[in-house]
């Protein structure tokens, strides 16, 4: 479904992705874990063509999106939905307008059909009666759920989650994870979740990849990753201060 082959990306002189290769299995939830600032979001943005690598290939259903023009890239992006770290809701629009926006712009549905679909999508994420609220009137968890409703509205084949639970309390955090699991079970999309929520991430994902210094150190099932003997992986999942991962 998504395959990154020998992808290298740097900003100024700092190499963020270093000859990285990763294959995301179709129809599964794959988590990308790793310390903050290691390029997890950069990796996600390469998958949807928001960033282009200096070298390497990003294959989405066999097509290399790194060499595509805007038109072809938009055709590939039709397959995607994305939930951003801060939800990226349009702050001058109400919740209803935010969720309705892709339908209004990309379909020829009537106003009634759009209204029904928006209410259905908001119902899926457990939000009702907040149509007229603006994003700045919502809590962090509510914003993420509205973002998720918007991302899932056009039934994407692939959904990317960029740190969906950062900054949320443990209960909302668990609720969002459950929501990802439930919506995945309902819609069957391929999901890539960037997160450093350990150990919660192991509860609802099918595969986990550890990103460190621009490379995928290990990839496997949650159980395999938890049994890993790699010192970097071990230090990260145990949250130990001692080990090869340096922090400032």
């Amino acid at each position: 479904m998504i395959k990154l082959v020998n992808v290298t990306k740097s900003f100024d002189s700092q190499v963020v992705l270093n000859n990285l290769t990763l294959e995301v299995p179709p129809g599964k939830i794959t988590a990308v874990i790793g310390p903050s600032g290691e390029g997890k979001s950069v990796l996600l943005k390469h998958m949807i063509g928001l960033l282009r690598p200096e070298s390497g290939e990003v294959l989405v259903e066999g097509e290399d999106i790194t060499r595509m023009g805007r038109g072809s890239l938009n055709r590939v992006r039709e397959k995607f939905g994305m939930l951003f770290q801060n939800a990226a809701l349009f702050d001058s629009m109400t919740v209803f307008e935010n969720v309705a926006f892709p339908l209004e712009e990309k379909t020829r549905l009537s106003a009634t059909e759009i209204r029904d679909k928006v209410h259905e999508a908001l119902g899926h994420v457990g939000l009702k009666g907040i149509d007229k609220k603006y994003p700045d009137e919502l809590s962090g968890g509510m914003k993420k759920r509205v973002g998720l409703a918007r991302a899932l509205l056009l039934n994407p084949k692939i959904v990317l989650f960029d740190e969906p639970t950062t900054g949320l309390d443990p209960i909302i955090c668990r609720a969002i994870h459950q929501l990802i699991k439930d919506t995945h079970a309902r819609f069957g999309f391929t999901a890539v979740v960037v997160s450093h929520e350990i150990p919660e991430i192991f509860d609802f994902t099918d595969h986990v990849a550890m990103l460190y210094r621009g490379e995928i150190l290990e990839m496997g099932t949650p159980a395999e990753i938890q049994r890993s003997t790699h010192p970097v992986v071990r230090q990260f999942i145990t949250g130990s201060l001692e080990g090869p991962i340096r922090f400032v």
Partner: peptide
């Protein structure tokens, strides 16, 4: 503000120009 809060990226991910 739309740029720094990733709202422009959100438009792109929806395949909107």
């Amino acid at each position: 503000i739309m740029k720094i809060t990733e709202q422009i990226d959100a438009l792109r991910t929806m395949a909107l120009e």
